[in-house]
Design a protein around this nucleic acid. Sequence first.
DNA 1: CCCTGATTCGC
DNA 2: GCGAATCAGG
Length: 234
Amino acid sequence: MSWTEERIATLTKMWEGGNTASQIAEELGGVSRNAVIGKAHRLGLKSRPSPVKANDKKKAKPAAKKPAAKPKAAAKPAPKAAAPKKAAAPSPEPAPAPAAARKPATGPVNQSQPMPDGNKSDLPKIVSVGPGGFLRQGPGDQQPPIPPAPPRRLVPAKPLPEMAEKTSLLDLNDRVCRWPMGHPGEADFHFCGEKVNPGFPYCVEHCGRAYQAQLPRGARRPPPPLPFGGPRVR
DNA sequence: CCCTGATTCGC
DNA sequence: GCGAATCAGG
């Protein structure tokens, strides 16, 4: 199984929606819980309430966790030359703001064309123009002032034809029903998309499924019909 | 024991 | 990039 856009979208949504990695893995199928977690971390989304919290005590000494004895791997000849791959700074860092919120946009969106105006810098930098019109690099300049313009023409992506009228994950908003139709990962997986019952995330019909009256004790019935969970609801 | 997510590291 | 193995807390 490979991580297609579809599967990544499902993973992202379910992960952010608070589903456990096991649930996500089961829903996606063909992947293990570990695979889901690993992918989630690789995607940059992480840090949901985890049972194993980082010891942010003053002890910055997690130390070697796996010194040796892996069945798969060949034994290392000499572990003494173990160089730390990551420089773990024990001091509180001033928040380098590493990963800004980046969302996978809808397909290959239009990447902006080269801007004609050289904004972004109000510094009265002195540049000189060389023969041919290129800007000469000043003595202090570290990098060329103008990135080369991509000589490619971007063409609009062609979505799947049968998905044209379906409400995809990226079509969700506060006004449309978020009830999943089908199963994530399937080619035709989409969302209900009806106008929501005001105040609820679902349309009137699916509110009826999502919210059921509490029956008196003794006459209890329900395996609750959760989205993502149940056998096919369509 | 079961569950959970985090991390590592060979592939 | 992927995910099994492993770690570690609940």
